[in-house]
């Protein structure tokens, strides 16, 4: 399988990564280089094999459903590139 230019544009959109039109073709070549290389996994017989989703065979721990973090809105907002009164500011979404 290899990707074409439309696929590159589509996945860039899905990933929310702006891809300038002149970058589409070089990116297609780079991605196809990698995809061609991973193709070799097709040779492996994986019939009846369960996919590995967790490295350690432990049951996920449960914790008490209680508040453990202090109310610290000031600290949370420190790194916001746009903030006002403990709100994150973004461009208008609703017309």
């Amino acid at each position: 399988m290899s990707v074409d230019k439309d696929t590159v544009r589509r996945i860039a959109r899905l990933a929310r990564l702006k891809l300038e039109e002149e970058r589409v073709e070089p990116m297609m070549a780079e991605l196809n280089g990698i995809l061609e290389w991973v193709e070799q996994l097709k040779e492996v017989n994986v019939e009846g094999i369960e996919p590995m989703t967790s490295v350690v065979a432990h049951r996920l721990k449960m914790r008490e459903d209680v508040v453990t973090e202090p109310n610290n809105a000031d600290a949370l907002m420190v790194n916001a590139p746009g903030a006002a009164d403990h709100f994150f500011v973004v461009p208008k979404v609703v017309e």
């Binding site: 959109r13 990933a15 929310r16 990564l17 702006k18 891809l19 790194n79 916001a80 590139p81 746009g82 994150f88 973004v90 461009p91 208008k92 979404v93």
Partner: peptide, 22 residues
Amino acid sequence: VRYGHRCQDPKDLIDLYERSRA
């Protein structure tokens, strides 16, 4: 939005995401 680099003058929210990340 919450932290990290934000692009200049985004025209809408999608543009903000896409250009900030790129």
